[in-house]
Every structure is written in C-alpha cells, then in structure tokens.
C-alpha cells in the first residue's frame, strides 16, 4: 500500500506562537490516501481540518505558524523537504485546492478566463489562444453554460454557484493528482450544494484524482467518501473506511457524530444540520494538554484519559481509533 499510495502523512504537527503562547494546532496527525480515493475529513470548527489542508500545501501562515514535525509524502516525495521553488511547482499542478467562499476566492479586477489561464501559463506554458481554448474547455467541463462568453466575464457577473464552478475549473486546470476541497459548498444554496458535489464526484471519477473533502456534515461524508478521518482538538481520533466507521464508530466522539446521521440530511429549516450537540466545549488550543482532548466531554472517560493520549489502535481492516476504551490495559 505504501508504494502505490498517493499521499501519506506521518506525525504531522503544526504549532503557532512560542514560549508561553505556544499552541499545537495539529498534533501527530497521520493518514494515507490511495490514488482515486475520496477521503473525508470531519470534525467541529477549530479542530484543524483547514490547517491540515494548508500544511499539505505547505501554506501554513508563517509567522506565527510552523510545521514542527512530520512527513507529508506525495507520490514518494517528502513535501516538507522540498524547496520553495519545487513547492510552487507542485501547487496548482499536482495538488490543487478550492476554498469555502467562492464569492471572495476570485480576483475582482480580472476576468475569470485570465485567472484560469494563469495556472495554465504557470505550469503548462500555455498562453494566448491555446490557453483560451483550454480555459473554455475547462469551463465547459465544469458545466458552465456558454463558456465562450463566461471566459471574458468578471467574477461579480457570476452567481456563487458559477463562481465555485470556476474555482473547480481553475483547480483541475493542470490535471492535479490530488484535489483538496475545504467545505466547498458551505456558502451555497442547498440545491446548488448538491450540484457541486455531483460535479466534484464526476470530475474526480473522470480524471482519476484523489479528493480530500473537508466538511462538517456527516451526511456528505456518508454520500461522497471512501474513507474518513475524524479529527478532534488537532488530533485524528478515528479513521477507517467510511462504511466501517459509520457502521461501527469506535470513538465516543465519532459515536456522537454518527448517532445523528439519519436525521442529518436536512433539518427543519431545510438547511443541512451541523454536528450534533455534544456536551462541553472544545478545549482551548492554548492549553497544551497531555491527555485525550475529548476527555472533558467524554461520557465513558477513564481516570488516565487526562494523563496520556492513547495511541491509535487497529480495530478492523484499516480502521484505527485512538481511545483508551479500545486499548488493552492502561499506561
């Protein structure tokens, strides 16, 4: 599996600040992806999902942040050892990313066409008519009507859903091996959300990309992903094949999430429901705790949960959980 893998992350830690203000925003994060796989990252606000994506891109804001440990291996190459020039070559070309907010992700003073063409020029050396032809093709591929005209449109002339399609067109311009979508539909209407997910899925299948889908929504995880990584407080608390994790959630936090999946699709006001209420609050990242970050909210907490973080234990086929309840013995 290692040799054929697309992406392997080992022991990834990201810290902000220093001294008394040190905050470990990611702590020993590890997961793997195979080519063509869709991996979901789920967890509540502030648990480090976006930071994981930025770390893969090596775009953790520095200062104050820094990647303090770990390896991020893309197709055999450790990105944390790559030079800045090499990283610029990889970004947009082998790894692409789309953001949550399509309204602000496009530069307001240039046409969408010129922004799509930029990536083509940067990585494939296309320019002029060739870049335009390829750009129009991409707009067509993401389902934008009359792509010839839209190529010359300014971002403010397009709706949110159209802009997110443009972002997707930009992201897939150079046929990346890996596409990271960070909550790509949060800012969109429900009907448009479904369309964007359909588009992502068909594009991923057609082009054989790996897809990392970051979301709050267990319904999206269930529908879209092959594997899921559940994060809490900067750590991976459980990961495995999506159907295994949904069928046999092992971590108390995952169980809380999964308990609500059937009702998750829509709640009363037609909005997709957010994560269910789990009593307690997320611990402040500013306190560097030694034990399990979920301990204070856990309903099956053991005395030693607060002292030491349990290691990830294999509990099924490629299904890991980091919980003392599933460990043999105690520290």
């Amino acid at each position: 599996m290692t040799a054929a893998g697309l992406l392997r992350i080992e022991g990834l830690s990201v810290e902000f600040g220093s001294g008394d203000n040190l905050a470990r925003v990611l702590n020993d994060v590890a997961f793997e992806m195979k080519p063509r796989e869709t991996l979901g990252i789920v967890g509540e606000s502030g648990c480090g999902k976006s930071m994981t994506a930025l770390a893969i891109m090596r775009l953790v804001p520095n200062p104050p942040g820094r990647i303090s440990a770990g390896r991020i291996v893309l197709g055999g190459e450790d990105l944390l050892q790559a030079t800045d020039a090499r990283m610029r070559d990889i970004r947009g070309n082998r790894i692409a990313m789309i953001f949550q907010e399509p309204m602000t992700s496009l530069n307001p003073v240039f046409t969408v066409g010129s922004q799509i063409a930029e990536s083509l020029t940067l990585h494939l050396g296309l320019s002029g008519a060739a870049a335009r032809a390829r750009g129009v093709e991409l707009l067509k591929a993401v389902g934008i009507p009359s792509p010839e005209q839209r190529f010359d449109a300014y971002p403010h002339q397009l709706s949110g859903g159209m802009r997110q399609r443009v972002m997707i067109a930009m992201a897939i311009a150079c046929e990346p091996e890996l596409l990271i979508a960070d909550e790509p539909t949060t800012a969109l209407d429900v009907t448009v959300q479904a369309q964007i997910f359909d588009l992502l899925r068909s594009i991923q299948q057609a082009r054989g990309m790996g897809l990392i889908l970051i979301t709050h929504d267990m319904g999206v995880i269930a529908e879209m992903t092959d594997r899921v990584v559940v994060m809490y407080g900067g750590r991976v608390v459980e990961q495995g094949a999506t159907r295994d994790v949904l069928a046999r959630p092992a971590h108390p936090y995952t169980r809380g999430l999964v308990a609500c999946v059937p009702t998750l699709e829509m709640d009363g006001d037609g909005e997709p429901a957010d994560l269910p209420e789990i009593p307690g609050v997320v611990p402040s990242i500013w306190e560097l705790q030694t034990g399990c970050p979920f301990a204070d909210r856990c309903n099956v907490v053991l005395p030693w949960c607060r002292q030491e973080m349990p290691a990830a234990t294999l509990i099924g086929v490629a299904h890991w959980v980091a919980c003392w309840q599933r460990q043999e013995g105690r520290p």
Binding site: M57, L59, M87, R88, D89, I90, R91, G92, N93, A96, M97, F99, E101, T104, S105, L106, N107, P108, V109, F110, E118, S119, L122, H123, M167, M170
Partner: peptide, 26 residues
C-alpha cells in the same frame, strides 16, 4: 489576507507575481 490572494498561492504563483500582478491592481 483575502481569499483570492490565498488562491493565488495555492496555484503556485510566485511572490513577485502576487505582489505586482494580484494585490497591486486591487
């Protein structure tokens, strides 16, 4: 700090291009 500048980093644009070609026009 705006998203479209982050998006520019994400497609691998260099600092010079981001300063003069992306932020300055805005």
């Amino acid at each position: 700090e705006l998203d479209f500048v982050a998006a520019e980093h994400v497609i691998g644009a260099g600092k010079g291009r981001i300063i003069w070609g992306v932020i300055l026009p805005n």
